[in-house]
Structures are given as C-alpha cells and as structure tokens.
Design a protein around this nucleic acid. Structure first.
Lengths: 225, 225
DNA sequence: CAGAATGTCTAGCGCTGCTAGGATGTCGTC
DNA sequence: GACGACATCCTAGCAGCGCTAGACATTCTG
C-alpha cells in the first residue's frame, strides 16, 4: 500500500512530464499542426488512450505546455529587469542571473539606473523569448485557450510575467497597469506579425527602439509620477 | 459558343462569390473551426467537390475571405482618415465618406487639422473593424496564410490599408514606414489579445488613448520631420 | 490461491480535408 | 434529328483526426 504505490506515482509524474515535453519538442520542431495524439503517443512509446488518463484532451496538453512557458517567460523577464536595474548596462543578455527567486513579484519598481532602461531590457527579453521559441509562444498567446488571464484564477507565473512589465514603471504611477498592457500588446503584435511573415523580421530591433523611445521618453514615461 | 458560355461563366462567378460569402458568414456566426467543407457545401447547396473546382483547398477559401477583408479594411481606414483631416472632428464614425477612390494611396499625408488627429481616427477605425468582424479579422491576420505581405506580390488592398497608417505621418518623415509598423503591431496586439480574452476588452479605449498620446505627442510624432 | 482492482491496449466511432470514377446533361457536327 | 465529344456534377471512398468503449493483462487484497 505504500512503497509500490509511491513508485507508481513517481512513474506517473514522470510520464506526465514526458508527454508535455514531447508535445513541446514536436511542436517546436514541426509546428503545432503536426502534434497529433497518435504521433505524440508514438513518441512517448505508449498507446493513445494513455494520454487521456493524464489530460482531459489535446487542448489540455497544449495548456500544460503553455503554463510551463509562462513560468519560463516570467523568469526570463525577471532576469533581464534585474540585470538592467543593478548594473547600468543597457543591452542584452545577463551572464549569470543574480536571483532566481520563486516568489513572483517582489521588490516592485525600484528606480532604474536610467529611465526606461529596465523597460527596454524587459521588452527586448520578451521579443527574444518569442522569436526563439515560436511554438511555445504560440501555445501561450495565440492558440485558443480557456485559461483565465486577468482574473482571480490567473496562474501565478502568468501574473508574474505581466508584473515584470508593471514593475518597470514608477510604483506611484496609478496607470502603470495600463501602460504595461499597451506595451505588452505592442510587443505581442510585433512578435506575432513578424513570426507569421506579416512584417519583415529584420526590422524588429528598430521597431523596438522606436516603441521604447516613445513610451519611455515622454509625458507619462516610466519614472514620471 | 458564346451566349450560353457567357451565362455559364456568369453563374460560375456568382457561385464563387456565394462560396466566399457563405464561408465568411459561417465563420462570423460560429467561428472558423465550424467552417468545414461539408457544411460549406451544404450551405451553398452544392456537393463538396464543387468547392475544389473553384478553390485549391480550404485554405484558399479562407484566403479569399481575407482578401475581401483587406479591401474593406483599407476603405474603412481611408474614410476615417479623410473625415478626420477634412473636418476637425476628433472622434468616431464619419457619416458619409467623401471619396471611395480605387487608386489606393493617393494624396499622402496632407497635414491633419491637429497633429495626431488623423492617426487617432485611423487607429480607432482599425480597432473597430477588428472587434466588429472578429472572424474576418482572424482570416486576415491570425490564421496561417501564404500571402506575401511586405513584398512585390502583396495584394494592393493590403498595401493600401497599411498606407493609411503611413499617410498619417509627415511625408518628409523618413521613418514613417517604421512608425506605421509599430502602430499597426500595437493595434494588432490589442485587438487579438482582447478578442481572445487575454486582456480585458473593457479597457480598449483607454489603451488606445495612451498609445496615441505617446506616439503622436512627442519626439518623432506624426507632424515632426 | 481466488477475486477484485488497476493499468494498458486494440479496435472503432464520427468527424475532417480531399479525390477518383461514374452518371448526367449540354454542345457542335453530320 | 441523331450522335460522339465535352463539360459538369455527384456518389462513394481514402487517410487521418480527436476521442472512447471494451477486452486483456497484470498486480494487489483478503
């Protein structure tokens, strides 16, 4: 009643992970339309119905991949923001992240070394995330989902990711949630239009630069109350 | 060899339109996942294979719907921009459009009555279009397509719609194409995230206002060279 | 060791996009 | 007016999809 069942439970959890990562890999390699229950089952070396003993259906598998993604995105953005606020370096990839904290949205909005610098770093990190893992990004933000976004049942990692944008603005700024929504929308638009070839992927850096300049540089920029 | 064949050709064209509008109506009523070749065939009162004598496949039907949409969007944006540049009224719907010209991108960038007013009108019209015809909008900008966007084979109505954004900026502004891309991306992000419930649809107006203020109000706004 | 319970698989349902092949009707020509 | 040629359209069916019922095997319980 105990040791054996524990082993079984462990194996079950392991297989659960196996399914999720297999789905993700398959999607990343060949796109979500190639992710069928049959191919997925073959890949994890079980029969089809096993999938349904772990998930309510294919959509639930996609959702599980998406939730993984939310956690990774939040961590990615957080690293970028902290690196930008601590050192003064304006650009790109932090070498080793200083903190990898689990509690999502701590130390809100400590003033950036230079106005808009944190925002720029977070935005860049967001686009980087979207372009480097297009299928994962699609699962999170494009494919139809029944995940609640701006509500009480919002998964914490999702809220945490959003808060990374919010925290780029002055905590006294009452409209910073609104700002974050607009920034996020713009980044999402750029990411998805570029991914589907609707705007030239080449200009992404320039577009980002313009966006940040406009948002950060003026009347109600990140550090203005 | 003539009159009868002409009639046949007319009927064929008519049926072509019938299929496209049926697909669009069905999608608008029940979403694109409800648009199957069988249901579509039933709706136009022909058998399934007839669809394939008009289109290369289901994707081609969606594309046809999208192309219709591009034309309508361009006209919609154009009306909004002209109404805003001629009268000085800042808000909403023009009563009767003055011109419905076919040549897409005429009279570029005549100065707005007030800086950013044309831009605001066009942006508002864009979001209006997207929210009132969500399925059509999806066909145009969300569903996978093999339409060429920023290239030589870009369908003229599509280019025309984009130019409505470009023309909101000063013609001497070398970066106005870039600005238009960013504006468009932001609007697209807002439209699609709101439609899929990922940001609250209620705040759309406020977000738009913030976006316009930031883009139009500063360093490289619409009327600045 | 018998019986219950659990886990997994085979087989199949109704649906999808798409197509081959035969039936039907219309055409130009004798 | 009859006839072969042609175009048009439909019935029937294929392979693949998400998903599930029921048989089978294995393992645990008394």
């Amino acid at each position: 009643m105990s040791a054996i069942n524990e082993r079984r439970e462990r194996e079950r959890v392991h297989r659960h992970r196996l399914i999720v990562t297999a789905a993700r890999e398959l999607a990343e390699a060949e796109g979500w339309e190639a992710v069928t229950t049959r191919r997925l089952a073959e890949r994890v070396e079980y029969s089809q119905p096993v999938l349904y003993s772990h998930f309510d259906g294919k959509d639930a598998i996609v959702t599980a991949v998406a939730i993984d993604g939310f956690g990774e995105l939040a961590a990615h953005l957080r690293r970028a923001r902290l690196a930008a606020t601590q050192s003064g370096q304006p650009t790109g990839e932090p070498g080793q992240p200083a903190a990898e904290s689990d509690q999502p949205a701590a130390e809100p909005g400590q003033a950036a070394a230079e106005p808009g610098q944190a925002l720029r770093a977070v935005c860049r990190a967001y686009l980087e995330f979207a372009t480097e893992r297009p299928a994962l990004y699609q699962a999170m933000f494009v494919l139809p989902t029944d995940l609640k976004f701006a509500s009480a049942e919002t998964p914490p990692p999702l809220r945490a990711g959003f808060d990374e944008f919010v925290n780029c603005f002055d905590p006294h700024n009452e409209r910073r949630e609104l700002f974050a929504e607009v920034i996020w929308s713009a980044l999402h638009g750029m990411a998805v239009l570029s991914d589907s070839g609707r705007i030239p992927p080449a200009g992404q850096e320039e577009r980002l630069d313009f966006l940040i300049t406009q948002i950060a540089g003026t009347p109600s920029g990140p550090t203005t109350p």
